[in-house]
Simulated assay, not measured.
Amino acid sequence: MFIGAFHLELIFVTEDLLKPMLIVALAWIYVVLLMALTEPTFVAGMMTFLFYCALPLGILFYLTGGKRRKRRRAEAAARAARDKEPPA
């Protein structure tokens, strides 16, 4: 029990909160995949997977990734400005 709690604490101590979200997303993909496999037809299974999994998770990751995209853009701009400076 202590190891699990300690591991969970280490995940949340890091500033990157992407790891817990990925665990939840993987669990959701697994659940929806099992739901899709139980559908009576292939088309129904694909629609279930698309509308319950791929589309919502795509929207969720796009909305929650805004800060990461902004940070990466700023780092790239700083790197480009640093590379433009003439060597001393």
Rank of each mutant, 00 (worst) to 15 (best):
F2D: 11
I3L: 14
G4W: 10
A5Q: 12
E9D: 05
E9S: 07
I11R: 00
I11M: 12
F12C: 03
F12T: 07
F12M: 01
V13K: 11
V13E: 11
V13P: 05
T14R: 01
D16Y: 11
D16R: 04
L18R: 00
L18T: 03
M21D: 06
M21Q: 13
M21C: 07
L22G: 08
L22T: 09
V24N: 05
A25S: 15
A27L: 15
A27V: 12
W28G: 04
V31I: 14
V31H: 11
V32E: 08
V32Q: 04
V32P: 02
L33R: 11
L34N: 11
M35E: 13
M35K: 12
E39T: 10
E39H: 08
P40N: 10
T41R: 13
M47I: 09
T48Q: 08
T48Y: 07
T48P: 02
F49M: 15
F49K: 00
A54K: 03
A54G: 02
L55C: 02
L55N: 10
L55W: 13
L57S: 04
G58K: 01
I59K: 11
I59R: 10
I59N: 02
F61G: 09
Y62C: 03
L63N: 14
L63T: 04
G65Y: 01
G66L: 08
K67N: 10
K67F: 07
R68A: 12
R69W: 14
R69C: 05
R69Y: 15
R69S: 12
K70N: 07
R72F: 10
R72T: 07
R72E: 00
R72M: 03
R73Y: 15
A74P: 02
A74H: 05
A76R: 15
A77M: 10
A77R: 10
R79P: 08
R79T: 04
A80W: 01
A80I: 04
A81K: 10
A81W: 02
A81I: 01
R82P: 05
K84V: 00
P86R: 13
P87I: 04
P87G: 06
A88D: 13
A88K: 07
